[in-house]
Design a protein around this nucleic acid. Structure first.
Lengths: 219, 219
DNA sequence: TAATCATTCTAACATTTATTAGATTAATAG
DNA sequence: CTATTAATCTAATAAATGTTAGAATGATTA
């Protein structure tokens, strides 16, 4: 029994606990780290490079994520590899950034600036895209680093990391559309890839969604 | 085009924007306010009473929620009524607290303490419960204040606010199970109701889920 | 028109959090 | 066994946030 009409102390502890999860999602750099971990496990140093911050600062943020039990670690030699503790963490990241995109005009306009062309595929094209990819009418191109592709990728996707794209252009067909994607809507690799491809005379469009967004819609 | 290989400035603005939503979910009291608003619109004073904090403090928290565009307001006479700006806010609240329950042992054990009886219905019983409710084999009882019931309630639910339960016991059958629910797993009203009902010789169990949890699972 | 009520706004202080630097640990390589 | 590397831990400071108090706003009531 609660013993009181409203159990203030109990409630306070309950909400405090939930707030630990919210706090983990309340810092821009932690969100960026979470998004990186959505692409697969990564060492601390790697996370620091990708997020453009010091190893010490990444480490501090990772501690926050660890104490919230959102990430787990594995040691291999000198390196410690971090990964998400639960698929639900990736789902929550997707839901948080989706809500942000729906509610915050500032975010909408910032996103429009980076990909202002009307050629972005929207989620509704999802089934159409898969159909076309299955038939080989379009090439779905994953431009993330190879390990991330190996961890998980979209159905029918082919991997050419952005770094290697210029040298490997010949692998791509000129007569079909190329749909490039990367880590998600806040990753700019696919945008750069499309720019390069178009400049070289390919037909290319950019898919906002990454693997996490794709998976979280599979319900 | 991004003009640089990684577009640090752009990325920083994007993640900062998303973090505004995370920040809104990072304070225990704001979470409690969000949960209250999941039950329907409420005045500032009402929120202060329910969350056991001063009007000034509620007002400060509401400002945070307002600047994150998660709530909207309506003025009626002297009062200002707050409501969630989007159903997706309630869904996010459910997903955050669900993740917290799955990941944080401290939260699990705190929850077990308040409802340690093995009679809690789990989400898997959902269809079973609806079937029984449809047939009238069980009574689904909403013990929240009447306005909250009017805003939204579970299918087949009957409303008897906890305050009035003792006087209105005769409205309930003694030969059938009573399934009491309230605002959700952090609200203690249903637990108190079950305690009272059992003490008075009724067959009663407690349903952890509230309207928001119920609705968010409807996918 | 003055008084009242509900709420917000501003300013101030206390507490938390982000960030950086220096010392420490744990594993490997020489 | 020492040096090196990857990462953490501790401590310190700067920045942000929570919280409270007092003044201000906007609508209603007397």
């Amino acid at each position: 029994m609660t013993g009181m009409k409203n159990g203030r102390k109990i409630k306070d502890t309950l909400y405090e606990q939930v707030a630990r999860i919210g706090k983990a999602f309340s810092s821009p750099k932690r969100l960026e780290i979470i998004e990186l971990l959505c692409q697969g496990e990564k060492s601390v140093e790697r996370l620091a490079q990708e997020a453009s911050i010091s190893v010490k600062l990444v480490s501090a943020h990772l501690r926050e994520l660890r104490t919230a039990h959102l990430v787990e670690t594995r040691r291999e030699g000198k390196n410690i590899y971090y990964r998400l503790a639960d698929k639900a963490v990736a789902d929550l990241w997707v839901q948080v950034h989706t809500l942000a995109e729906n509610r915050l005009e500032e975010l909408q306009s910032a996103l429009q600036k980076i990909a202002s062309q009307p050629d972005d595929l929207v989620p509704s094209d999802r089934e159409k895209l898969m159909k076309a990819a299955r038939k080989g009418e379009v090439v779905v191109l994953d431009v993330r680093p190879a390990e991330e592709y190996l961890t998980a990728h979209l159905p029918f996707a082919r991997s050419i990391p952005l770094d290697e794209l210029r040298q490997r252009l010949s692998e791509l067909p000129r007569d079909r559309s190329i749909v490039a994607y990367c880590r998600g809507p806040y990753c700019l690799m696919a945008i750069d890839a499309v720019e390069l491809l178009k400049h070289e005379g390919y037909r290319a469009v950019h898919l906002r969604e990454g693997v996490a967004e794709w998976a979280s819609e599979e319900r």
